[in-house]
Design a binder for these strands. Structure first.
Lengths: 238, 238
DNA sequence: GCGTACAAAACTGTATACAATTTTCCTGGA
DNA sequence: TCCAGGAAAATTGTATACAGTTTTGTACGC
C-alpha cells in the first residue's frame, strides 16, 4: 500500500489496534486453537497490512498472555497460549485478590454512592439470573453480564492504579470466563447466589465480608472450571 | 548495521531487551526526568540500533506504566510518566496489601524455615541500619537493601500466584522507592524500626501482627514520601 | 524400511526508505 | 508588541528489503 489509496478507511495509527482486536477475538472465542502457530506474514497478508503493525499487535498480545513464545533458542515463534487448569486457577486467584480489594474499597464509598452501586449490581445480577435460566443459553450474554457485574464495583471503587492493574490482568481471564459460562451455562445458580452475597456485604458496609465474598466467588469459580477442564481435556477446540 | 560487523556482541533477538533495560534504568533512577519526551530516533542513535527494536522496548515500557502517551490525536508521542503524590500513595497501598499478605503467609511457614527467614531479615535490616547512618549516604545501596528485605519474605512465603502479582506491581514502585531513600537518606530510622517490628511479628508467628506491621511500614512510607513530593513539587529532576 | 545429511523453503530480527502528521519557527500585518 | 499564517523541520506510522536461523523436504546410504 505504498502509493495506492488505502484499501480500508482505517485512520493512521489505528492499524495495530485493528490487528490486535481481530486476533484477540479469534483467540478468545477459541477459533484460533490453543497451540496454533501464528505467522506474521500470514496475518499481514490476510488483513492487508504490512508486518510492522502486526508485530505491534503480537507484542501486545504476548505481553497480555494470549500468545506465548515457544521455546526456541534464537527466534520467537509465537503460538496461541494453551488453556490449562493450572493457569486458570492461578489467574482466577489473582483476580480474586484484586477484585476483593476493590470490593473492600467499595464499602468505604460515601453512603449515597455506595447505595447507588448496590442498586446497579442488583439490577445486573437479576438480569444475569434471568439469562442463566433461559431455555437456550446465550453464552455471549451470560459472559457479558457476569463481566459487567464485576467491572462495575471495580470501576466505582478502585483507584486508578488498582484499575490499571485490573485492566492488565482481567482480560487474560476472559478466555476462561467464556469457557466457564459456555460449559456451565445451566449450572450458574451458585454464581448468582455468590453475587448476592457480595451485594449484601457492600450494602452493609462490611469490608472484610465484601472482600471475602468476592474471593469466595472466584475461588469457587476456579474450582468448578478446574473440574471441567480436567474432564474435557486441557487443549483443543470446544 | 547491514553488512558491517556487529558493533556490540549482542545476541540476535536480545536487542529490544537491551534497549528496554537501558531506558528503564534511566527512568527509574530519575536521569530521564518525568515529563521528558522520548524520541525513537534519539534512542536508536544513542544505542546504535535501528528504530525497530526501540519500538518494541517503548511499547513494553508503556504497558508497564513507565511512559505514557501524551494526548495527541493521531500520533503517539511517548513521554516519561510523571511522579505524582496520588500515584505514589495508591501504588504503595497496593504493595502494602500484597506484601502484607505475604508476611501473613510467612507466619505459617514451618518453624525451621520461619526461623531461617527471620535470621536473614535480621541480617539485611542490620546492614540497612548501618547504611542509613553512613556519613555520605549511598542511595543505591539503601534502595537495594530495603528492596532485598521485602523481597526476601515474599520469595520465601508467597505462593506462585501472589508472587506473579508482586512481580507485576513492585517494579513500578521502584521509581518511588528510589526517590524515597534518596530524599530521606538520613531520616530512615523509622523504616529500620518498622522493619524490626515486621521481623518480630514473623518470629512470634502472629499472622495479624505481621500483616499489620507490613501495612504500617508501607503506609508510613507513603505518608512520608507524599509529604516530600508535596514539598519538592510534583515533577522535575532531583 | 529407516535414519541421516544436505539443500531449500519458511520465518523472524533488524535496518531503512518513504509517507503523513504534528510541531516549531519565522515572517508579515494590525 | 502581539497574533495569524505558512513553510520547514521533526517525529511517528507503515512498508519493505535483507540477513540469519530454524524447519522442512528429499535423497542417499545402511
Amino acid at each position: 500500500m505504498k502509493s495506492a489509496a488505502p484499501a480500508s478507511p482505517t485512520a493512521r495509527g489505528a492499524t495495530p489496534m485493528v490487528v490486535y482486536h481481530a486476533l484477540r477475538a479469534l483467540i478468545v472465542r477459541g477459533q484460533l486453537a490453543p497451540g496454533s502457530r501464528i505467522v506474521e506474514t500470514e496475518v499481514a497478508a490476510r488483513l492487508r497490512v504490512s508486518r510492522t503493525p502486526v508485530r505491534g499487535a503480537l507484542q501486545r498480545l504476548a505481553h497480555e498472555g494470549y500468545i506465548v513464545d515457544s521455546v526456541s533458542l534464537q527466534q520467537s515463534r509465537p503460538t496461541v497460549a494453551p488453556l490449562t487448569r493450572e493457569d486458570a486457577l492461578e489467574l482466577f486467584s489473582i483476580v480474586a485478590e484484586i477484585e476483593g480489594l476493590a470490593a473492600r474499597c467499595a464499602t468505604a464509598l460515601p453512603p449515597a454512592k455506595r447505595e447507588a452501586l448496590v442498586r446497579e449490581l442488583t439490577t445486573i445480577n437479576a438480569r444475569f439470573e434471568r439469562a442463566s435460566r433461559a431455555k437456550v443459553p446465550r453464552h455471549d450474554l451470560l459472559y457479558e453480564l457476569d463481566e459487567q457485574f464485576h467491572r462495575r464495583y471495580v470501576e466505582r471503587a478502585a483507584g486508578p492504579r488498582l484499575r490499571v492493574l485490573h485492566d492488565a490482568v482481567k482480560p487474560q481471564a476472559e478466555r476462561y470466563e467464556r469457557l466457564y459460562v459456555s460449559l456451565l451455562s445451566r449450572g450458574l445458580a451458585p454464581s448468582v447466589q455468590e453475587h448476592t452475597a457480595i451485594i449484601r456485604a457492600i450494602a452493609s458496609a462490611d469490608p472484610d465480608a465484601a472482600q471475602r465474598a468476592v474471593q469466595v466467588n472466584w475461588r469457587n469459580a476456579a474450582a468448578r472450571l478446574g473440574q471441567l477442564i480436567t474432564n474435557v481435556g486441557e487443549r483443543g477446540q470446544w
